[in-house]
């Protein structure tokens, strides 16, 4: 190697030397960031930190108390064991349903988001509106309408009976299928939108480069498109999985006793049975579990590596 190239950039990233001391005008405005933070911070303290703390405290109350007699703080950690013994089936079922929902959502949303982002052309915006359109109606109303769609005398059941997928007494309502179908329907847009956002940014020239470097369509997808859309996949799975785990509307409206999810249990413990300590313990367990799962997921998905 005779002729040498300039090693432009030297040893690496440009280094900006900070000024020795900030000018006087800047020092005087140090409170500005705090002032900007304050409203949101106060809101979160009042309506998030305090309630969560209260919930945690309630999970340790005396399980023998009642709304009439009041609850004593007895630091009853055994509430957690009781809650687990009574409701671990619904608890694990919720995580399982949420997992299936998330996987189905990824499988449905990825091709859809890809089609809109890459092949959408001038229909892009219209298709996006189509994805968001369900939000114009309330969540509850939409889930009710699924009740009609999946009804025992409804067109879906009739058709499935006709092609002999369902037996003469078969039904969809009150089955796992109905609950998960409802969850998928309701959370699909939360998967499509972040996926669309990351696929839309994808530079098609990178795919040309991959093709030029001996990668066929499948390998180009696996080595370029998919890794570059991982931020969207991660965001979408979080937006799907977390609310789906705690959801109770779908299980309540479309499910039956055998498809009850933890959200319904917490709701009825709080509002029907008035068993505050167990309801609180279940809530705290759910939060902690999701927090741990999300932390593990995000750190293994490694999105911080994607520029």
């Amino acid at each position: 190697m005779a002729a040498l190239l300039p090693t432009a950039g030297g040893t690496g990233a440009p280094v900006d030397a900070p000024p020795a001391s900030p000018p006087a005008g800047m020092r005087a405005r140090r409170w500005v960031p705090y002032a900007l933070l304050a409203p949101g911070l106060l809101w979160l303290i009042a309506f998030f930190i305090v309630p969560v703390w209260q919930l945690f405290a309630a999970s340790l109350w005396d399980p023998n108390g009642s709304v009439e007699t009041g609850y004593a703080m007895t630091w009853s950690w055994s509430n957690y064991a009781t809650a687990w013994d009574m409701f671990h089936v619904q608890f694990l079922r919720s995580l399982w349903y949420a997992l299936i929902t998330t996987v189905v959502c990824v499988l449905l949303a990825y091709p859809l988001a890809y089609a809109i982002a890459v092949k959408g052309g001038r229909w892009k915006n219209l298709m996006l509106v189509g994805v968001i359109a369900p939000f114009f109606t309330s969540y509850l109303v939409r889930t009710y309408s699924w009740k009609a769609i999946l009804a025992d005398t409804g067109p879906v059941v009739e058709f499935l009976k006709w092609i002999h997928v369902l037996g003469p007494d078969g039904r969809l309502l009150a089955t796992e299928f109905a609950v998960i179908a409802g969850l998928v329907y309701n959370f699909l847009p939360f998967m499509v939108l972040p996926l669309y956002a990351s696929l839309e940014k994808l530079d098609v020239r990178l795919l040309e480069a991959a093709r030029d470097l001996y990668h066929g369509p499948v390998r180009s997808f696996l080595r370029v498109t998919l890794p570059l859309s991982m931020p969207g996949v991660v965001a979408g799975t979080l937006l799907c999985f977390i609310p789906a785990t705690g959801d109770y509307v779908n299980a309540q409206l479309l499910g039956g006793p055998n498809t009850q999810m933890i959200g319904s249990v917490i709701q009825s413990r709080f509002l029907v049975v008035n068993d505050y300590p167990i309801a609180s313990a279940l809530s705290v367990m759910l939060m902690a579990t999701i927090l741990v799962l999300v932390t593990i997921y995000v750190s293994t998905a490694g999105t911080e590596e994607v520029v």
Binding site: A209, Y214, V306
Partner: peptide, 20 residues
């Protein structure tokens, strides 16, 4: 012939380096 089968490689105007 498909581009990934050709014994030809390209230096793209935008470089098209894989950012990840």
């Amino acid at each position: 012939m498909r581009p990934y089968k050709r014994p030809v490689n390209t230096v793209f105007q935008s470089y098209a380096l894989f950012p990840h």
